[in-house]
């Protein structure tokens, strides 16, 4: 394939790739997109648009997220609940350690799906933002302002050749003087405010469930149970792997505005609820099957 509008400098890697293409060797096409622009060299560098106006590195970063373990958060009128599915990759891992949900500061929490070290770095940056804001204004940063700062930070990683975009979609939320807030931040740097947000492998089924919740009436305690249920449900497509669930919350009343892990009894209650609901669904499915049998 002969390219027009060739970028001014062509790296060795790009050159080799083109040679391979010319020879018809190992030209991998992305079947999903059904385009030939993948593998033309435009996907090798950040900050370079492909002729049809895409930034492939950012899209690949989003791919890294899609395979990550499911994380979600639910916003209630008084707080936010975070939950994450932790796939157990080794029997040697210590249960209830290796936490995935993090605290940015006092009343702000974060969870993310994708490349975990990238998430750690972003949280570290968020904490720096939190502290420098306190240093300047002597009060806590608001969630919308924090997310705006982080959005700008993440976006900068899509602009330079020397770096790669963040391989995470992070869900950040908390409470401040203006109430509860929840945002989801993507590898491109774009962020949106949500009532319920989900990222990672099970996001699609999680979103379906999140859409059914009545957010205006939801208490944070109920949200914990729903969060557990949705994580369990989203795990169904990935059933062969063992998992643990981690839940945290921040609520103006229940946790006095502090982001913290939910107490053991609430977690146990939520897990039991999730398991029950899951079994109920399965029973219903079986009944449906029976009906079908009878029809036959």
């Amino acid at each position: 394939m002969v390219r027009v509008n060739k970028p001014y400098h062509v790296s060795l890697a790009e050159f080799l790739l083109q040679m391979l293409q010319v020879l018809g060797v190992g030209v991998h096409d992305d079947g999903e997109r059904g385009r030939t622009s993948v593998g033309t060299g435009y996907d090798l560098s950040n900050s370079v648009f492909s002729p049809d106006g895409r930034n492939f590195q950012v899209e690949y970063a989003a791919k890294a997220v899609e395979n990550g373990s499911t994380s979600l958060a639910i916003k209630t009128p008084t707080g936010v609940v975070f939950a994450v599915e932790k796939i157990i990759t080794s029997k040697l891992l210590v249960p209830n350690k290796n936490n995935r949900i993090q605290t940015i500061g006092r009343s702000i929490g974060a969870v993310y799906s994708g490349l975990l070290p990238d998430g750690r770095h972003l949280v570290s940056r968020a904490r720096d933002e939190f502290n420098s804001y306190r240093g300047q204004y002597k009060e806590d940063i608001t969630v919308p302002y924090l997310i705006d700062r982080l959005g700008n930070y993440v976006q900068a990683y899509t602009c330079y050749n020397s770096v790669r975009p963040f391989g995470i979609t992070s869900i950040i939320g908390g409470v401040d003087g203006e109430g509860s807030h929840l945002y989801m931040l993507e590898p491109s740097g774009v962020y949106w405010g949500y009532k319920g947000a989900a990222a990672g492998k099970g996001r699609q089924s999680a979103k379906n469930e999140l859409e059914k919740l009545k957010y205006d009436e939801l208490t944070s305690k109920d949200a914990i149970k729903e969060a557990a249920r949705i994580i369990y449900l989203a795990h169904e497509d990935n059933k062969d792997k063992d998992f643990e669930i981690e839940i945290s919350w921040v609520d103006t009343v229940e946790t006095k505005g502090l982001h913290q892990f939910v107490p053991e009894d609430l977690l146990a209650e939520a897990k039991a609820y999730a398991q029950d609901k899951l079994n109920e669904d399965e029973d219903e499915d079986e009944e449906d099957d029976e009906d079908e049998d009878m029809d036959n």
């Binding site: 240093g135 300047q136 204004y137 002597k138 009060e139 608001t142 302002y145 705006d148």
Partner: peptide, 18 residues
Amino acid sequence: TQHGKPPTARIAASLFQE
């Protein structure tokens, strides 16, 4: 401009203090 809302006297005092 950054916050899209007016500052409070507390914010101003904090800036003076710093």
